[in-house]
Amino acid sequence: MADTVAGASPDPHAAGDDPSRRDFIHIAATTAAIGAVAGLAWPFIDQMNPAGDTLALASVEFDLTKVEQGQQVVLKWRGKPLFVRSRTGAEIAKAVKDDTASMRDPARDEDRHKPGKAEWLILVGTCTHLGCVPTFGGGDYGGWFCPCHGSHYDTSGRIRKGPAPTNLAVPEYAFLSDTKVKIG
């Protein structure tokens, strides 16, 4: 190669080879290749997100007469456990009384149940720390206790002690009648 260049003009650009045109082709080709790879990468990443049928299984109806007062029923919703708890008067009073206590994720008890339905507490049953299922009635506050890393929830499902950052989540739900709820 060196031999063929020798004798020709030492500066290839001076020979009428426009540098900006060549650069443009390089940049355009590289950009097109990166764009194509990025465009193709997205389907391969997005295929791991929830599929259509998974998204479709979003709501569930539940008959509240199955729950005795002072107890809870665990049902499966979106692959996760859901707590439906019928609270006793004492448990409600305790939760309301603690509204003013110092908490990591402050919330009032009345905001965690439907108006006039203080008895019914419906929560997503996964610990907000790392997703274990807290056990009913355990812990220092009588709500739930997570066996994995020791998070204590009160009778309103609020985090009171341990590593969990937030309260047990309240799912979207509505009362269809006095004894029936639709969750999701």
Partner: peptide
């Protein structure tokens, strides 16, 4: 986490991948 699970919890999609 939703992307890793392929759903709203660890489920069949998670096991498969």
């Amino acid at each position: 986490t939703t992307w890793l699970w392929g759903g709203f919890a660890v489920d069949n999609a998670t096991l498969n991948r």
